[in-house]
Design a protein around this nucleic acid. Sequence first.
RNA 1: GUCUCCUUCGUCUAGUGGUUAGGACAGUGGGUUUUCAUCCCGCCAACAGGGGUUCGACUCCCCUAGGAGAUGCCA
Length: 493
Amino acid sequence: MGVRVRYAPSPTGLQHIGGIRTALFNYFFAKSKGGEFILRIEDTDRERFQEEALQDLYSTLNWLGIDWDEGPDRNGNYGPYVQSQRTELYREYARRLVENGHAYYCYCSSERLENLREKQKKDKEDFGYDRKCRNLSDSEISRSKQDNVKPVIRLKIPLEGETVFTDYLLGEITRKNSDINPDPVLLKSDGYPTYHLANVIDDHFMNITHILRAQEWIPSGSLHVLLYKAFGWKPPVYCHLPMVMGSDGQKLSKRHGSTAVRDFIAKGYLPEAVVNYVSLIGWSFDDSREFFTREELEKLFTLEKLNKAPGVFDYKKLDWFNGNYIRQMSNDKLGTMVLPYLVKAGFVDENPSPENLEIIEGLIPLAKERLKVLSDIKEISAFLFRENGEYNLEEIIPKKLDAAKTAEILENIKMHLNEIFENNEEKTEEFFRKLSEKLNVKLGDIIMPLRTAVTGSKVSPPIIGSLKLLGMEKTEARINRVLDILKNEVVNG
RNA sequence: GUCUCCUUCGUCUAGUGGUUAGGACAGUGGGUUUUCAUCCCGCCAACAGGGGUUCGACUCCCCUAGGAGAUGCCA
């Protein structure tokens, strides 16, 4: 049988970096082996279920370019692929476990369980269920039934011995049965299965061959193996992936910044960059290569190059990847990618005027190598679409020069605005050089006052290109505005 | 607390008994440049500690320490 793997998220929250890393690795593994990648929705927690999370899942996978061979919306021979539609199956098999003595009904209330946990914490005893209902007499059972308590079904973990399973990456993982979560719930009182039950049953009936999931599931691994044994089934191959951590070494979470893929999309990260970077957390190809397209990863991914140790998610390296991918993009494509951000900033309409379209077209080459994320376009292009705020004289007047000299420089530029806008960039630059000689100042002392006057900032895209995008009229107006301030300073200062 | 897993530069990693321990991000210094950015060049920086095994350990074994995860009618 070929490789069959699955990504089985539970729609209780937005897709985050850790989740998609698991999805990606499963997907790459399937592709590299010519196997099948299955999407399964584990929506057995009815309280935490979010419709939004479901939509987020689909849009995120779609954005990443991950496609699945079988899933809720695909044909497949093992459906349905939504656990809430398979409850009868789980109930049936939970019952069978009770019948053959591997599981039992438990009538303990959640209050009792809570008290138990508190007491254990206080007395520093071992945590876990005390197995009160494991050996209930018939009369006790019938009494509970009369009280109309909805029971759960718990798995009987063997009291003695140990459970061993082999992890593809980590090797043998051995655990004393007495250390395993004592008698975990399989079927909840609302009739839905817990993760453990549903997961094992589905993986079995869906013929899943390999389970790639994060290492936080290792402890459950022993339990799952026990479940397979109780059913008389053969467990799949386990491969627990190293976890993704935040900068403090703890499990990556909101504390560390954005982790929801949706947030990365909103900020203007590209799927190529996210896929590329995330696939390098816990996996590598060789000693130096780190740029991979999704298609390449579909071929090159291999379990052999997986790392055991957890990896810290590095936002800066993602930025670096993203900047690289932005620079690789064609100008046309970047233009259309950047447009929504200009719209959102209120700079242009959704259907920009021809003039604005022209500005955007000219802006792209200037902005391209300055973008880490697409949303950076707002800062970079603001001067083109709105007027500058208050000017700061100190930023306009170059060091070693005074207001009068600066005014002279800007006057000179202003006088030649016509030719500046007619000439090409080289000629304009030449003009600035000659002007600097004529006025006996450095080239920078010509450029910087102009830059600050026109863009409102000491940092901007190349000034000559920026001027042309802005247009002569606005350029002149802004120079005039600064000249007024400078002249005022000369008179009063 | 208990159990399990993990441990190479700040971070991601290469390394599978003999290497000046390599690359990348970040940082830092410099060059190109009208600022910023890009690009180029340089620098900084690691085998957690202790025992073994071996002619020889980053590589194998043990112990210690540190970190993480799990310990739910959540997944």
